[in-house]
Computed example of a mutant assay.
Amino acid sequence: MTYSFERRLLQLAILLASIVPLGMGTASIVAGATVIRGVRAPVPIDLDSHFRYLSGLLLGIGIAFLCALPRVERAGIVFRALGLVIVAGGLARSVSLLQYGPPGPGHLFGLGMELVVVPLIVIWQARIQRRYRETASAE
């Protein structure tokens, strides 16, 4: 597979994966904590405030991934930093899973994104960055 084709595939994978934080971040900011299964209004104000704050972070993560797309081969630091934040969140979510049991399907999907998909994308980005540097140094 050529470098250019693999780079485009990575960009497409990131674009598709970004739909999750962009969509859920936006929906959760708009709806607040009531977007969670079993949570009904009125929601405690501090819970709603914290939930919307974290939803804003989720939206920001999605935007940061999209901003890195055009120069994905040079955005290693961005991908590693975002990956660290996301995996840390997934590990925190795992504490809840161990303590209280499995959440609903949407949250299990999120856990899979956080602990499987994102690390694979970070590794893939590092491969593209390495191939880019090899190509640039050969010229």
Rank of each mutant, 00 (worst) to 15 (best):
I14N: 03
L108Y: 08
S55R: 00
A13R: 07
V122D: 00
A64T: 04
D48H: 14
R71Q: 10
A136K: 06
L10S: 02
G106Q: 06
A88I: 13
G110E: 06
A126W: 06
S4V: 08
L22S: 02
I36G: 00
A27K: 02
A13E: 07
G62E: 06
R8L: 14
G60V: 00
V116D: 04
I19G: 13
V85Q: 11
S28R: 07
A136N: 11
A64L: 03
R8K: 12
A33W: 11
M113S: 13
R133P: 14
G89M: 08
V122R: 01
A138Q: 04
P21E: 01
S49M: 10
S55K: 01
V122A: 06
L66Y: 04
E114L: 14
A81C: 12
G106R: 04
F65V: 13
I36Y: 06
V95G: 06
Q11N: 07
I123E: 07
I19K: 09
L120K: 04
I45K: 14
L111G: 03
T34P: 02
Q129Y: 10
R40D: 15
L97F: 13
R71L: 10
R7N: 04
P119S: 02
G32Q: 07
I29E: 03
W124M: 03
V30N: 01
L58F: 02
S137K: 14
V122E: 04
T2R: 01
A81I: 15
G112C: 11
